[in-house]
């Protein structure tokens, strides 16, 4: 009961925050919540299975672009539903085609997926609709977007908590460890991977869709920016992709650091980012939380 009440209190405080924060503060909180959700959703699939997906921005962009295209023609909630459905369908197609293959093929494919989607959307806009770039006029303020993201983050965490109590978590970890053993224990490996990939991709699509109104002007190069895939991955890995809270723990310091970097070193942002990432790969191969845990275990072991 206690953690439940504590959780409600934290959510309440976070929801209340934009009422007292200034615009900058709310914007910061919004961006952070967006990345925390992206990283948590990314880790939901990639953490246990160790299938490294570089496709985050493909789905994020699909969500954002759907909103840009449909915001004038459909009521907003329906736009979100349509965006989620498109993200779901694309992830199912991509997943079906690539998840049966060895992990490295999946990485390669996901690496280029954003570029593929971006070029296809651009092609479609230029040749079929004759526009490139769209305006989004939705009566949503920063805090409205933030509240939606917060709700999505809470939902994502709840799914994560539930999953960890159910057999699917066991199956996912088993898939990451040894697919053959998992199969022979009765796990339908392909279906398990596909289901989780699709779930994770759908949440990521929704993050893009919800955040889209933050840009009033949207075009493919903006919403399919590969830095988003990169940051999501770095955050989840730093915090520990196998842990429920890991991605959030990673997202907070890195998001603030990146904000600071892009404000102070706008031109050298990407260099510093890449450098930090290489350092992370070297320093914490399994993420900070996992590392703390192994240290804890060692200490316990010595005590016995």
């Amino acid at each position: 009961m206690k953690p439940f009440l504590f959780g409600l209190l934290v959510i309440g405080l976070l929801a209340w925050a934009p009422l007292v924060l200034n615009d900058y503060g709310t914007g910061l909180l919004l961006g952070l919540t967006g990345y925390a959700t992206l990283a948590t959703a990314w880790a939901m699939f990639s953490g246990p299975t160790r299938y490294v997906s570089l496709a985050t921005v493909a789905f994020f962009g699909i969500g954002a672009y759907t909103v840009a295209v449909l915001s004038e023609t459909l009521p907003y909630p329906l736009v979100l539903v349509v965006a989620a459905l498109i993200g779901l369908s694309v992830s199912l197609v991509v997943g079906l085609a690539t998840l049966r293959l060895a992990g490295v093929y999946f990485v390669i494919f996901s690496f280029g997926l954003a570029e593929l989607v971006r070029q296809t959307v651009t092609w479609y806009e230029v040749n079929v609709t004759g526009t490139l770039g769209r305006y989004i006029f939705l009566p949503l303020e920063a805090r409205h977007i933030y509240w939606q993201l917060l709700a999505l983050l809470v939902l994502t965490l709840l799914i994560g908590i539930y999953m960890r109590k159910s057999r699917i978590w066991l199956a996912l970890v088993a898939v990451g460890d040894d697919e053959v053993a998992a199969r022979h224990a009765g796990v339908d490996v392909t279906r398990t991977k596909l289901a989780l990939f699709a779930l994770s991709a759908t949440i990521i699509t929704l993050v893009g869709a919800i955040q889209a109104p933050r840009w009033t002007y949207v075009e493919p190069t903006i919403v399919f920016n590969p830095t988003i895939s990169f940051l999501t991955l770095v955050m989840a890995l730093l915090g520990g992709a196998g842990k429920l809270w890991g991605p959030i723990v990673g997202a907070i310091p890195l998001f603030l650091l990146f904000e600071w970097l892009s404000a102070n070193f706008p031109n050298h942002y990407s260099i510093i980012l890449g450098g930090i990432f290489i350092l992370i790969v070297f320093a914490v191969p399994n993420g900070i939380l996992a590392r703390l845990e192994t240290l804890g275990q060692r200490r316990k072991g010595e005590a016995q």
Binding site: L170, A171, V173, A174, D177, D178, A181, A182, A185, G186
Partner: peptide
């Protein structure tokens, strides 16, 4: 399945 405990290694086969 080295990420899991002994119980979980066996449990998976009961669960599935």
């Amino acid at each position: 399945l080295p990420s899991l405990t002994l119980t979980e290694n066996v449990l998976i086969s009961a669960a599935y």
